[in-house]
Amino acid sequence: MTRLLSLFTGVSLAFIVSGCYESPSVTSYEPGVYKGAKDPLMQANKDQRAETMKKRFEMVQTDR
């Protein structure tokens, strides 16, 4: 229950219509270094992928 509450209190009421970008005050951790296998997805051309995804998003998830 506590966890659920924290999720919903974390919901912000202040929404600034124009400033929808990353907040500078992020949580910071001391991360470990990834020790697993390389993901081939990371080798692919990301900008091209971003472009494809953008099209897909417009097609599939907007109200047309």
């Binding site: 919903f8 974390g10 912000s12 929404f15 600034i16 929808c20 990353e22 992020v26």
Partner: peptide
């Protein structure tokens, strides 16, 4: 506007 979970996840609300 209620961007559920965004603050916890992305440290931003919109």
């Amino acid at each position: 506007p209620q961007t559920w979970g965004w603050e916890s996840a992305y440290g931003t609300t919109g």
